[in-house]
Simulated assay, not measured.
Amino acid sequence: MANVTFHQDPVTLMGNELKAGDQAPEFTVLSNGLEKVTLDDYKGSVKLISVVPSIDTGVCADQTKRFNEEADKIGNVKVLTVSMDLPFAQKRWVKKHDITKLDTLSDHRDADFGEKYGVLIKEMRLLTRSIFVVDSNNRITYAEYVSENTNHPDYDKALEAAGKAE
């Protein structure tokens, strides 16, 4: 598993670490309207999945805003942000920050995404900061587990991978 810290303290990630070349696991999360959303709902599209511990904190907010701003530049890519935040909190945050080019999705109910993508922090029931690019055939082409949760991901590498994925 990826070695990850939260404020420099080691944390335990639940599930298996995914790598480029792996088949993206199916998952179920909730939309801001409380509807079930699955990977299959984005079938045939390239997906950039941005994972944050809590959308309403500094680095997480910056990460989500950055991918919202970059969404038009990377072509026909569906951008998703997944967190453990309640759908109601995500909806308020999205409205407040005028986020219109990505989907915010909640893993709060079942932690299904977190366990299947190896990003669920056992000690906190939060998701570790990470990025996955999934091609139109649901194959992972890029995966980054950010080693320190308070750090930003490598935006340029993630955006480049999303732009190249088919």
Rank of each mutant, 00 (worst) to 15 (best):
Asn16Glu: 14
Glu17Pro: 04
Glu17Ser: 09
Ala20Ile: 12
Asp22Thr: 14
Ala24His: 07
Pro25Leu: 04
Glu26His: 11
Phe27Ala: 02
Thr28Gly: 02
Ser31Leu: 01
Asn32Val: 15
Asn32Gln: 15
Asn32Lys: 14
Val37His: 00
Val37Leu: 04
Val37Ile: 15
Thr38Met: 08
Leu39Phe: 01
Asp40Gln: 13
Asp41Ala: 11
Asp41Cys: 05
Asp41Glu: 11
Ser45Arg: 12
Val46Tyr: 05
Ile55Val: 15
Asp56Ala: 13
Thr57Arg: 10
Gly58Phe: 13
Val59Cys: 02
Val59Asn: 00
Cys60Asn: 04
Thr64Asp: 01
Lys65Ile: 15
Ala71Arg: 14
Lys73Leu: 08
Lys73Met: 07
Lys78Gln: 15
Lys78Cys: 12
Leu80Met: 03
Val82Phe: 01
Val82Arg: 03
Ser83Leu: 08
Ser83Asp: 10
Met84Pro: 11
Met84Ala: 14
Pro87Lys: 09
Pro87Trp: 10
Gln90Pro: 08
Lys91Thr: 10
Arg92Cys: 10
Trp93Phe: 11
Trp93Asp: 07
Trp93Tyr: 09
Val94Thr: 12
Lys95His: 07
Lys95Phe: 06
His97Ile: 05
Asp98Phe: 07
Ile99Gly: 01
Ile99Ser: 00
Thr100Gly: 00
Thr100Ser: 06
Thr100Trp: 01
Lys101Tyr: 01
Thr104Ile: 07
Leu105Tyr: 04
Asp107Asn: 02
His108Thr: 12
Arg109His: 09
Ala111Val: 08
Ala111Ile: 08
Ala111Ser: 11
Asp112Ala: 01
Gly114Leu: 00
Glu115Thr: 15
Lys116Arg: 12
Lys116Gly: 05
Gly118Tyr: 04
Gly118Phe: 01
Val119Lys: 05
Ile121Ala: 04
Glu123Ser: 02
Leu126Asn: 09
Leu126Ile: 13
Leu127Asn: 11
Arg129Tyr: 05
Arg129Glu: 07
Ser130Thr: 09
Val133His: 06
Val134Phe: 00
Asp135Thr: 05
Ser136Trp: 00
Asn137His: 12
Asn138Ile: 04
Asn138Cys: 04
Ile140Ser: 05
Ile140Leu: 08
Ile140Met: 00
Thr141Gln: 07
Thr141Tyr: 06
Tyr142Asn: 13
Tyr142Asp: 14
Tyr142Trp: 12
Ala143His: 10
Ala143Lys: 07
Glu144Ser: 06
Glu148Lys: 09
Asn149Met: 15
Thr150Cys: 06
Asn151Asp: 15
Asn151Val: 10
